[in-house]
Amino acid sequence: MNITDMELNDFLSRNNISEEEFTECPLDWELIQSIGADHQSKIDDLEDLAESYAKTIQRFAKVHSVRWRIKEPEHLMEKIVRKTIKGSGSYNKKYINISVSNYSTKITDLIGIRALHLFKQDCVEIIHLLEERWKKSEKITAYIREGDSKEDYKDRAAWVVKEHKAGYRSIHFVFSTLPHKSKVFTEVQVRTIFEEGWSEIDHKIRYPNFSDNEDIGAFLDIFNRLAGSADEMGSFVKALSTMIEKNEAELKSLEVENAEYQEKVKSLLEKLKQQSQSVEVSELVDDLESEMQNHLYQVLGKAGAEMYSKQDNLSYSNMLMKRVLMGSKIDNF
């Protein structure tokens, strides 16, 4: 629809704004309509910008997928109305003096990009890469739901942590560029795939009519908690997998080192046997080889469960070697 042809009553009806609410808006309809029309005329250029930004972000290692959108002209107009109604939950005084010439500097999400990732902790690296690529226009904001712990962000002193009234969880990074004559702001929301799924369903249910049905709200709240639990489980599974891989790598390394050590000891024992003329020493060397072989089997049998100590193995072998060289008998092993 062409914004200039839009009727006020149709606009109010579609966006669930009463005439009484609109009378509390200090802006006249002609101004709101002009802003919407100006934005509509620039959508093609904004889409080109958004697509280029999205391609850059998609190359970030921790980013699973990227979505982007340009704010629809009518949604922009609806936002301006709600932001200028005093007493409403959305009121923000910075919108009072909005105009066709400055709306693009007051509305920071004309271009909206969502960078989705798998694990909660991935957001830190993604935000770091965003900061390297673009200079942020305002403080990074981490939105959490009521009941979430702020401890996850204790090392992010420069971030602003806020409870989102609707329960959304995401990190918001806003930057500006000057592609043509006017400055354009872009808002990047960094969130997990689970959180994106919940927020999309919540948005589809609530947003069109600003539904405040208690039953719907209760179930969406449960859904929100499940999404948060899924994120926690994802982080736990990743940590568990990392620990198992690390242990397996250490075990393999120890097995290789132990095999190399055993070869060196066998070589030394063979030289000792060849150089010694004593039958007793030769027998002790044979006993030592047998004991070491038995010990190796026992250690490797327990290694998967206990991650045996390399130092203990070396100490044991060294002790046996000393007994051989001193002519002692090997018992009680």
Rank of each mutant, 00 (worst) to 15 (best):
L8Q: 11
L12D: 07
S13G: 04
N15I: 02
N16L: 03
I17T: 05
E19S: 15
T23Y: 07
C25P: 02
P26T: 02
L27V: 02
L27P: 02
E30R: 13
I35G: 10
I35S: 08
A37C: 01
D38Y: 04
H39F: 01
K42P: 02
E47W: 06
S52A: 13
Y53I: 10
K55F: 03
R59D: 09
F60L: 06
V63P: 06
S65K: 15
S65P: 05
V66H: 04
V66N: 04
R67L: 14
W68I: 07
W68K: 15
K71V: 05
E74L: 08
V81Y: 05
R82G: 04
G89E: 08
N92V: 05
K93E: 14
I96S: 08
V100I: 08
S104P: 05
K106V: 09
K106F: 05
K106W: 05
T108F: 00
D109E: 07
D109M: 05
I111L: 05
A115V: 08
C123T: 05
L129S: 12
W134R: 04
S137P: 01
E138P: 00
K139Q: 13
A142T: 09
D148H: 07
S149T: 12
K150C: 04
W159C: 03
V160F: 02
H164F: 03
G167F: 02
Y168P: 09
S176I: 01
L178H: 12
P179F: 03
P179A: 04
H180Y: 10
H180K: 13
K181Y: 00
K181M: 00
S182H: 10
F185S: 01
T186R: 01
D202N: 11
N209V: 10
G217T: 07
N224P: 00
S229Q: 14
E232W: 08
L240V: 11
S241M: 10
T242D: 14
K246S: 11
N247F: 03
A249Y: 12
E250T: 09
L251K: 15
K252W: 06
K252T: 08
L254F: 14
L254H: 15
Y261A: 08
K264Y: 08
S267F: 06
L272D: 13
K273C: 02
K273R: 13
K273I: 00
K273V: 00
S278L: 00
E280T: 09
S282N: 14
E283W: 11
L284M: 09
D286L: 00
D286F: 01
Q293R: 13
H295F: 11
L296G: 04
Q298F: 12
Q298N: 11
V299R: 10
G301T: 03
K302E: 14
Q311S: 12
D312F: 06
D312E: 12
M319L: 12
L320T: 07
V324W: 02
L325Q: 04
M326G: 00
I330V: 07
N332T: 11
